[in-house]
């Protein structure tokens, strides 16, 4: 959809496109900025909850950043934290009630992690760093970009953990259909357990930083 708009819409200047694309790799919230790790890892044992949580964060961060940006001149600096929390909490309540109504099973699987979007540092972080200082449209792009950067890590981790841990993708038994079990393959039950999420993210960081050399930290 966005490709269509891009061609005739000057709103997508190179600068604005950059807002959308840098958080996907070079300035990724999880692997570089270290924001929003909290709720990211626990839901990634399966692909479906990962995708649902990623979409929820896209919604909350995209809409929230615009709201904060519209309000930025009226918010007194002293009370900005509580205003930001109210905006986030309102949006998260909307998401939560929506999931309860239309995707009850997933909502049960996500348990407290929908609520934890509120304290997801990536959201407060973007409000503080971007929404409070910029116009609504760039804020929207920044919000969507960061949420997608967060989302793709979630989805990649969820994909590998479900594939290697349960041999399925989105509940579809891939390995069984290929007939891998007949050759003596066994699912790696370890992948379902929480600590493996951290190790998978560690490996993603490893791959990313070997490609983008200037992200490498001092010891």
């Amino acid at each position: 959809m966005s490709a269509e708009v891009k061609e005739r819409d000057p709103l997508f200047s190179p600068k604005n496109r950059k807002l959308l694309s840098t958080p996907l790799n070079r300035d990724n919230p999880i692997t570089v900025q270290v924001l929003g790790v909290c709720s990211a890892l626990a839901v990634t044992a399966k692909l479906e909850p990962s995708v649902v949580l990623a979409l929820s964060v896209v919604f909350v961060l995209g809409v929230g950043n615009v709201l904060i940006s519209l309000l930025r001149k009226t918010i007194a600096p002293r009370i900005r934290i509580i205003v930001q929390l109210t905006v986030i909490a309102t949006l998260v309540i909307l998401v939560d009630q929506f999931l309860l109504a239309f995707a009850y099973d997933v909502s049960k699987q996500l348990s407290v992690f929908v609520g934890l979007i509120i304290t997801n540092c990536i959201i407060m972080g973007r409000f503080e760093a971007f929404g409070m200082a910029n116009k609504p449209w760039p804020s929207f792009l920044d919000g969507i970009g960061n949420a997608l950067g967060y989302g793709w890590i979630l989805i990649v981790v969820g994909f590998f953990r479900e594939l290697l841990g349960s041999g399925t993708v989105w509940g579809y038994p891939v390995f069984e259909k290929i007939g891998l079990y007949n050759w003596g393959y066994e699912n790696n039950g370890m992948m379902i357990l929480p600590p493996m999420a951290l190790i998978v993210v560690g490996i993603i960081i490893w791959v990313q930083r070997s490609r983008v050399r200037d992200l490498i930290e001092e010891n």
């Binding site: 600590p195 999420a197 190790i199 990313q208 070997s210």
Partner: peptide, 21 residues
């Protein structure tokens, strides 16, 4: 001597994973 791309954040994730196990 940690491999360069793992230094800092990467190795911290992996250590946390091992502690979790």
């Amino acid at each position: 001597n940690v491999p360069a791309p793992l230094r800092g954040l990467g190795i911290t994730y992996i250590i946390t994973g091992l502690m979790g196990i």
